[in-house]
Write a protein that binds this DNA or RNA. Sequence first.
DNA 1: TAAATTTTGCAACCTTGTTGCAAACCAATA
DNA 2: TATTGGTTTGCAACAAGGTTGCAAAATTTA
Lengths: 138, 138
Amino acid sequence: MEQEITDILKQSQLSITDNRLKILKLFQNNDKALSHADIEKLSGKHFDRVTIYRTLQTFVDKGIIHTIPTADNSIMYALCKEACSEGHHHDDHVHFLCDKCGTTYCLDNVNIPAVNIPKGFSAHQTNVLVNGVCKNCK
Amino acid sequence: MEQEITDILKQSQLSITDNRLKILKLFQNNDKALSHADIEKLSGKHFDRVTIYRTLQTFVDKGIIHTIPTADNSIMYALCKEACSEGHHHDDHVHFLCDKCGTTYCLDNVNIPAVNIPKGFSAHQTNVLVNGVCKNCK
DNA sequence: TAAATTTTGCAACCTTGTTGCAAACCAATA
DNA sequence: TATTGGTTTGCAACAAGGTTGCAAAATTTA
């Protein structure tokens, strides 16, 4: 598992640093999306705020994680599945936000339904965000 | 039309003030969603930043406008249709963000498609955000 | 019109995110 | 393993976006 993580970094041609290993591990240990603030807390304030911002940005650029648009306007990050690569995200899944515990999940098995767009508009990407109550809070 | 606007405020039990009339008029004159910054510009910097924030919050609370989650994480606001009331938003329409001009539209006539949610989750509201090119930019 | 209530503007503050730069670190090579 | 070169980190400072407390101004009610 430690091995897995270093492999991810190597495949993306990133140096192996404590910071990156730790943040990647956080994503693997949680099956939910994390915000910058979550990571700051979970990492025990061991790393600088700026470093965390830059690491997340790097991971997004390399296709390791993706961002999730949320209704309350905070940026959430989650691990990408195999299909993503540098500069090309393919996160065609639904995101679910629990109104009770605030957890954001990637519903990887739920496909984005087709949406009818009016004449004159052309669609490029579709984000679906569902609010409700999650399996742990019901 | 001036009349219409004061009626909206009265129905929501809000005092009629220059500020509220002007901001409501801005929404009626634009068929697109507006950000706080847009309103600050459009109102000719006549009102204080704080007043605009508070007015928008009041309008959201009263069900006059609704917020739109955007991928780039800025809050957008748009007029609600009749169905909304205090504390109960029913903005079950698709939002469209043009990648070229940055305009956000409410596609009122496009219904939210049904989304299959996994066992254990219960959906309450669904937001659909489509990116692409709008009718004016194609 | 006067009193009571609501709204506004100001100042100060907080949070979130960014930039420049020197020091620390990592990886590659000898 | 020591050295070198490029990358990453932490610090300080900054900027944008948003909030809060409070007194003054405007609106509503009577």
